[in-house]
Each structure stands twice: as C-alpha cells, then as structure tokens.
Amino acid sequence: MADVNRGNRPLSPHLQVYRLPMAAVTSIMTRITGHALVAGILLLVWWLVAAVSGPRAFAAADWVVRSWIGFIVLTGSAWALWFHTLAGIRHLFYDSGQLLRIEEAERASWAIIIGSVVLTLLSLILFFFA
C-alpha cells in the first residue's frame, strides 16, 4: 500500500469548495422562494380575516402590514413572487425542451435574477407613486 498516491488524486466536487453554476443557484432559489412565500400569504390572509373580525383586530393587523415589519415581509414576498414566477416560466421552457444548453441556462439564470429585482422595484414605484 506504500506506493498509493494519496496527495494528487482528483476529488469529487464538494459543496464548500465547488462554485455552483448559476443555473443550480437559481434552481435552489426557486425552491426557497416558493416556500418562503408562506410568510407573505400568512400576513395578508391574517389581514383579510382581521378586516371581517372587527375594528380592533383590523387595527392590529393593519398596523403590522403598514409597519416596517410589514414593509420588509411584503417587499421580500414581492421579490420572491417575481423570482418564483420568472423561474416557473423558465421551467415551462425547460419542459418544452428549450433553454437547456449550458450558455442558455446561464443567461436565463441572470435574466431571472435581474428581472426579479427590476420587477420588484417597479412594483414598489407603482405602489408608492401611482
């Protein structure tokens, strides 16, 4: 066993040292954003139910929705929703056999990231100024 080369063998890619391709990063983000949206939907449904529960319940829920906590949760949810939507549209392309080449998948990943940020900013501008 003395002649075995232990120092110079190829290693399998390990998550901590392996730089994930953008297509992998956006794929993981699709799952995370989809599940994280539960926070935004819970806040909004609580708000809707409070609106039919009485003035005091509504005042509490409406305060949270319009506070900085609500702003962070809802802005984060808007971005997660846009991201998940764009990534979902990409999955429809994947299913039809398109965007599957490495460069295309890489470019589509950047389009999803940049697109989701632009659409979120547009949503905020529409909300505050229109």
């Binding site: 939907i41 819970l42 449904v45 809707l48 139910v49 609106a51 039919v52």
Partner: peptide, 12 residues
C-alpha cells in the same frame, strides 16, 4: 389558509 381567505372575502 384557503378557507380563511375565502371566508374573509365572502363576508366582505
């Protein structure tokens, strides 16, 4: 969640 939202909307 669905039931809560539909109830709230129906009542409104």
């Amino acid at each position: 969640v669905i039931a809560a939202a539909v109830f709230a909307l129906a009542k409104m």
